[in-house]
Simulated assay, not measured.
Amino acid sequence: MAMIEICVEGFGEALTAEKAGADRVELCASLSEGGITPSIAQIRLAKARCSIPVFVIIRPRCGDFLYSDGEFEAVMEDIAAAKAAGADGVVIGFLTAEGRIDIARTKEAVAAARPMGVTCHRAFDMTRDPKEAIDDLIAAGVDRVLSSGQRANAQDGIDTLKAMINRAEGRIIVMVCGDPDPTLLFDGPVNPDAVDFHFGATGYGESPMRFRNPHVFMGKGEDKREYIRRVLDGPAITQRAERLRRLVVS
């Protein structure tokens, strides 16, 4: 069956995702910024309490994927720390200034990560040529690539996603993200060995804080997010996961 991966912020959300039917989680911090490396404590607790695989995003900052030597050094240290904490895989992505996969750094990171699994995250969607990028990731030994077809959502990127799957020829798994809707994505059943699905189902709830200082904000003042909390929508995950799993080859 098609594998369902849920992006989560913290081990508490990882547990919710597992209960809702996730096959795997991508553990992150700061998903409002696209996800950055979570703390070692979050990785350890997720591994201690979840029975499904935990993949850890290794991203030293938000923004682009062209890293300085110092940032890449931190990435390599984080890969080692995630491995030591028992992570099942890491999620990485490195680009050159020209918009190509940085093959040398990717190979180095893959070698350091083994025997963990390795996914390339949506840095892929920022590359200049998806066919070239697929070939580069295969050459670097990456197991799967996360993509919405280089568009804001999977529906708009469907032609590129189909081309990626055909290009991959089973050599790398294409993990579809960007609000995948199984009724719109493909004309017929999908080979479960070629495609995974990745999504989140996030809502927001009010903080239980009763006293609130209206004069101080920890982030940007205009955001005023101190008293809003993420809430993972378990029923929504279950519903979408069931629909996506029907896309299998009999």
Rank of each mutant, 00 (worst) to 15 (best):
D129R: 08
D129P: 09
D129I: 12
D129C: 15
D129M: 11
P130Y: 13
P130A: 09
P130L: 10
K131S: 15
K131Y: 12
K131T: 13
K131P: 10
E132Y: 09
A133Y: 09
D135W: 13
D135V: 15
D135S: 13
D135E: 15
D136M: 13
I138V: 15
I138Q: 12
A139H: 11
A140K: 06
A140V: 07
G141M: 13
G141F: 14
G141T: 12
V142M: 09
V142F: 15
V142N: 09
V142S: 10
D143L: 02
R144C: 06
R144W: 09
R144F: 02
R144K: 05
R144A: 08
V145I: 06
L146Q: 02
S147V: 01
S147M: 04
S148F: 04
S148A: 08
G149Y: 02
G149T: 11
G149S: 09
G149E: 08
Q150N: 14
Q150Y: 12
Q150P: 13
R151W: 09
N153G: 12
A154Q: 02
A154D: 01
A154F: 03
Q155T: 13
Q155W: 13
D156L: 15
D156G: 13
D156F: 09
G157V: 00
G157K: 00
G157H: 00
I158G: 11
I158Q: 01
I158S: 05
D159E: 15
T160V: 14
T160Q: 13
L161E: 01
L161S: 01
L161Y: 10
L161K: 01
A163I: 06
A163R: 01
A163F: 04
I165L: 03
N166H: 14
N166P: 14
N166I: 08
N166L: 13
R167Q: 10
A168S: 04
E169S: 10
E169I: 00
E169Y: 03
E169W: 02
G170M: 06
R171S: 10
R171C: 05
I172S: 05
I172L: 02
I172Y: 00
I172G: 04
I172Q: 00
I173Q: 04
I173H: 06
V174H: 03
V174F: 01
V174T: 04
V174Q: 02
M175V: 04
M175Y: 05
V176P: 02
V176N: 00
G178E: 01
G178D: 03
G178S: 03
G178K: 01
G178R: 01
G178Y: 00
D179M: 15
D179G: 15
D179I: 12
D179V: 15
D181S: 07
D181T: 07
D181E: 07
D181V: 05
L184I: 00
L184C: 07
L184R: 01
L185M: 08
L185C: 06
F186P: 06
F186L: 09
F186D: 05
D187W: 03
D187G: 11
D187Y: 03
P189H: 02
P189A: 07
V190M: 10
V190N: 02
N191A: 07
N191D: 13
